[in-house]
Design a protein around this nucleic acid. Structure first.
Length: 421
DNA sequence: TCTGGGGTCCTAGGACCC
DNA sequence: TCTGGGGTCCTAGGACCC
């Protein structure tokens, strides 16, 4: 049996944890740059607010009902996520942390009462971390995902749902739209409904040849999982990332190249830091710049350029130099840029670097590695950006908007919650 | 005025090889 | 009038997820 444990309105729950007076009140959390609504409590959804809506379109509803609004505070969410994961780990024999708010758990044999186990997990996570979760269980990942969705959507389950077998399962699958299945998005839903496949049961009942033809191999796997045949393994150790992207839109449009160079240097520093944490190196980087495509009256441009390195590297100064060369190649003067990004492609293990005539000697390489370790350690301890490269500039105007950000309650001594007693 | 960010996997088609 | 067959590798684009 596999369980999927999913935190309820996770970002909102994190914000509420330190603002208990918000329990039962509508709360939303915004995307980067305070752009869109990306997390909503049920109370906020009940007012008609929807995931993905731009803030400016939701403003009147938010103000009319006194909805509490937060900028996203990933430092806080990541820390609380790790606490939830640590609690879940005590219940599972195998576990996969699927996203910041979801984990798959596999139990040791001998469990007899899954319903009871599910309730214990839910209660314990709440008690240890303050975060409410729902638990869904089934013999495959897709069925566990579905059980979790039902646990969340159908009040009769009380937040814990165990996928039944046989006739009962058939009835449940018949009552679920095919688009509600994990891995079946809007395009595939349209393709399926065109051939009369409307419910989860219809998909499970399709023959393999047909699912493969209509949905390709990924779809065929999903259909098999719906039948209870496991095709998706629990991945306890996340494989190293193959690509790393750092991109963000700006609080204020960027129009001059020197400013854009600061953006690119800043994003590259961050991307390189992520890469070093993964223990990988890159031999190909890409930079892109974009105007605001929502502003259709403005002239539009989106450019991108790649640079290949002779020897794969994770040394920030070298990567920044390369990224600025890429910027030279994709920059066009005279536009109002809204977004830029850097991509690290073709990542490999740092221990298996292909050398060339220009590769550094071991001593010089060791010096670079030590410098980067020091840089990362300082920034980890003192907060992101405590030490940066000069090319990143100071106090930039393009930095993202975060007007309603809560304190880093759990990771900064100076931002601890104060309680009067 | 204001519209997120970061990933993965699969397929089709072109380039290239013998 | 006639113009092979069978591979591999790479990339772009589309689909999905949270």
């Amino acid at each position: 049996m596999i369980a999927l444990v999913d935190c309820n309105s996770f970002y909102c729950s994190c914000e509420r944890l330190f603002r208990p007076e918000l329990a039962g009140k509508p709360v939303v959390v915004l995307s980067n740059n305070d752009g869109c609504l990306i997390a909503l409590t049920p109370e906020a959804k009940a007012l008609g607010l929807e995931m993905g809506t731009p803030l400016f379109k939701a403003r009147s509803l938010i103000e009319a009902h006194g909805v509490e609004v937060f900028s996203s505070n990933y430092t806080l969410y990541a820390d609380l996520s790790s606490r939830v994961v640590a609690t879940l780990r005590t219940f599972a024999e195998e576990m996969e942390t699927y996203s910041i708010d979801e984990s798959f758990l596999k139990f040791s044999p001998g469990v007899t009462d899954y319903e009871k186990l599910g309730r214990t997990i839910k209660k314990t996570v709440k008690q240890h971390t303050g975060i409410p979760v729902c638990v869904g269980m089934g013999p495959t990942k897709v069925l566990a995902k579905l059980a979790n969705r039902l646990a969340k959507k159908r009040p009769e389950y009380g937040g814990v749902m165990i996928m039944p077998e046989g006739r009962e399962r058939e009835e449940i699958l018949r009552s679920v739209e095919v688009g509600a299945i994990w891995g079946i998005g809007s395009q595939l839903t349209a393709r399926l409904s065109a051939i009369g496949c409307l419910s989860a049961w219809d998909l499970a009942a399709m023959n393999e040849e047909a699912t493969r033809r209509v949905l390709s191999v990924t779809g065929a796997r999903i259909a098999a999982e719906l039948r209870g045949i496991s095709c998706l393994e629990i991945e306890e150790i996340a494989p190293a990332k193959r690509n790393i992207v750092t991109s963000k839109s700006f609080g204020q449009a960027v129009t001059c190249k020197t400013e854009m160079a600061e953006v690119v240097a800043t994003y590259m520093s961050r991307a390189a830091e992520k890469m070093r944490a993964e223990g990988t190196v890159t031999s190909c980087i890409r930079v892109f710049v974009e105007t605001n495509h929502f502003q259709s009256k403005d002239p539009q441009w989106s450019g991108a350029a790649s640079v290949t390195l002779d020897t794969a590297s994770n040394y920030s100064p070298e990567l920044i130099t390369a990224s600025l060369r890429a910027l030279e190649a994709c920059w066009r003067e005279g536009y109002r840029y809204k977004k830029a990004g850097v991509m690290l492609l073709d990542l490999h293990d740092a221990g298996a670097v292909q050398t060339s005539f220009t590769t550094l000697g071991p001593e010089q390489q060791a010096k670079r590695d030590a410098a980067m370790r020091m840089l990362d350690a300082v920034n980890k301890q003192h907060g992101r950006g405590a030490v940066t490269v000069a090319a990143a500039g100071l106090a930039p105007a393009w930095r993202m908007r975060r007007e309603k950000c809560s304190p880093r309650y759990t990771t900064r001594w100076s931002e601890l919650r104060e309680v009067k007693a």
